[in-house]
Design a protein around this nucleic acid. Structure first.
Lengths: 205, 205
DNA sequence: ACAGGTATCTACCAAATGGTAGAGGAAACT
DNA sequence: AGTTTCCTCTACCATTTGGTAGATACCTGT
């Protein structure tokens, strides 16, 4: 028999729901720590339905990673296009955009941090997919540094430092709570504002 | 029969080796992703030996967390005592000290990041153990800010930002490698130096 | 020599894991 | 109407999981 009302059986809809759930669970609890059964239960289907859409757990996370990398790329590029040609403004815009995505779906950046714990093939896959974005960021930063519009330094390391700061903050609400921060709207605004000042001070020439 | 040469059977030695291995494995691969069998194999004993020293997996990680928190506290306090009363110098000294520990044993900071994924009780435990250190850092930073010796801001968030930057960099060599960084001695020195400049610029008044 | 504690092992166990085989219902095509 | 295709399910399976029970060897104090 059909599992649920016929309406929800629209093509590919289950597949998307599985990807959504897997993104959240893998990103927040880790790849190995999440079982196919948990994902299936979360979506409301049998485990075998998950394995129908994705031949194995590894194939599932590969699709999750591809989708996430694509989403991040879109977010970042949109933010870049929307700003004027001032390096600090641009950093602020990108950080705001990424931060907004991360608040809406904490698992996004969590997935990136999960990279080093994934099966070799999946890790390489995600590296490949993010490489262009990273390379562009480094080139851009090198250019702005030599133009004297950003504090001089090794661009590849500075990019990594900015990345570490943003993902660290966005993926570790626990740490913030230990520091006495409150996770409400006001707290979020303050956090974003402090992070922006922090990064601008760190990058300004 | 005795498993190995009688010499290694010295009191408590196995227990320490289990704690060491568990710290490394939990910190690098995650609590749920590491099985008691893997730890036992790594140490070179049977799984039941692990369960003899620690009644359950949760008790094991609790001891790991306690030891790690104590070690970090010692490292930080020693670094503080060894510096003069200048805020930027002090931050640099603490960051250097923590970074040195993290390079020697990457799992140390990885464990902190694992906090949010631990069983409730273990997470609370580690929070409790680190709370004094965090509170002191915040108080100190608030004091230096109001004295105009550090850039003004919300001390609790700025502390979290520094923490995020350092742990993010130290626990994600993958991300650095994507950025083209090489993990050798020269690379490490450059990394430490860039991180220091970055943080000093971010915190200077 | 022997009794008792200490440390490690082998042998299990129930539950959960990722994955296979194949049945069956619904819709679409002929 | 019949057939095929698509989607989801139930029923298994071998392996691994955290954990229990109990045997065995070693050391120490008497």
């Amino acid at each position: 028999m059909a599992r649920r009302d016929s309406e929800s059986a629209r093509r590919g809809e289950t597949r998307e729901r599985i990807l959504d759930s897997a993104t959240t669970l893998f990103g927040t609890r880790g790849f190995e720590a999440v079982s196919l059964d948990q994902i299936a239960t979360d979506v409301g289907v049998a485990k075998q339905t998950v394995l129908y859409w994705f031949a194995s757990k590894e194939e599932l996370i590969n699709h999750v990673l591809t989708r996430t990398a694509a989403e991040l790329t879109v977010v970042v590029e949109a933010a870049i296009r929307a700003t004027i040609d001032d390096p600090l403004e641009r950093v602020e815009a990108v950080v705001h955009a990424v931060f907004r995505s991360a608040v809406r779906r904490p698992a996004l950046l969590g997935l990136l941090r999960e990279m080093s714990r994934l099966p070799t093939h999946s890790a390489e896959l995600s590296v490949t997919q993010l490489q262009p974005l990273v390379d562009r960021a480094i080139d851009w930063m090198a250019h702005e540094m030599s133009a004297g519009r950003l504090r001089a330094g090794r661009p590849e390391i500075v990019v990594a430092l900015v990345y570490a700061t943003v993902t660290g903050i966005a993926t570790e609400p626990e740490a913030l709570r230990v520091a006495g921060w409150t996770e409400d709207l006001v707290g979020l605004r303050r956090l974003r504002s402090e992070m922006t000042s922090f990064l601008k001070a760190a990058l300004a020439p």
